[in-house]
Computed example of a mutant assay.
Amino acid sequence: MQKLPRSFTPYVFSFYMATIMALLMCGTIVAVQAGFGPGYWASVFKTYVLAMPVAFCCVLLVRPLVLRMVALTVAH
């Protein structure tokens, strides 16, 4: 399997982080608001379609800030 160049690391990280977090958050929010009834997964998917691109952009934007905050609080 061919891998992406190292320069893509921030984008790949952001994509994976956004994918996982958006799915977890959509699943949680739908469960809290509507419960685990019929149509649960359809509702999760419907919200995920909106949330994932938003999460991806947000992770890209805040990543540099978070890296700086970590550097300020964790000893090297």
Rank of each mutant, 00 (worst) to 15 (best):
I29P: 06
W41S: 07
T19W: 05
V44N: 11
T47I: 05
V66R: 04
F13P: 00
V62I: 13
V30L: 03
A55F: 12
M69P: 08
A51H: 03
M69W: 15
A51E: 04
V62T: 13
K46A: 10
P64T: 05
W41M: 07
Q2K: 13
T47Y: 05
C26P: 02
C58K: 11
L65T: 03
P5D: 12
L67W: 00
A34E: 13
Y16A: 06
A22E: 00
P5G: 06
A18S: 06
S43E: 12
A34F: 12
K46V: 08
V54C: 15
A18M: 01
A34M: 08
R63E: 10
G35E: 12
I29C: 03
L23Y: 01
A18Y: 04
M21R: 06
G35C: 13
L24Q: 06
L4W: 07
F8G: 03
Y16V: 06
L24G: 11
L23P: 02
L61C: 08
T9C: 07
H76Y: 13
T19P: 01
L61S: 10
V74F: 09
G37E: 08
C26A: 12
V74H: 14
M1F: 00
A75K: 09
M25H: 12
M25N: 09
R6N: 14
L24H: 01
T28V: 02
A22Y: 02
M52I: 02
A42C: 01
P38I: 05
V66W: 15
A34S: 13
V59M: 01
Q2A: 11
P64V: 04
V62N: 14
M17L: 14
P38V: 07
Y11H: 03
G39M: 14
A71L: 02
Y16R: 05
M21Q: 09
T28D: 09
G27N: 07
Y40S: 03
L60I: 01
L24P: 02
L67M: 08
V70G: 06
L61G: 08
T73R: 01
M52P: 00
M21T: 07
T9R: 15
L4F: 06
S14M: 00
M1L: 04
M69C: 12
G35L: 04
P38W: 04
A71V: 00
V74T: 14
V74A: 15
Q2T: 14
A71H: 06
V12E: 14
K46N: 08
A75T: 08
M21C: 02
L60Q: 04
P10H: 11
V12R: 10
A51Q: 03
K3A: 07
V62A: 13
L50C: 06
W41E: 10
T19Y: 06
A22T: 01
M52C: 05
M25Y: 12
C57V: 07
A18K: 02
R63F: 02
L23Q: 04
A42K: 12
A18C: 01
V66C: 07
V44T: 10
M69G: 10
K46E: 10
C26S: 11
T9Q: 14
M17P: 14
V44K: 05
Q33L: 08
K3W: 12
A42Y: 00
M21L: 03
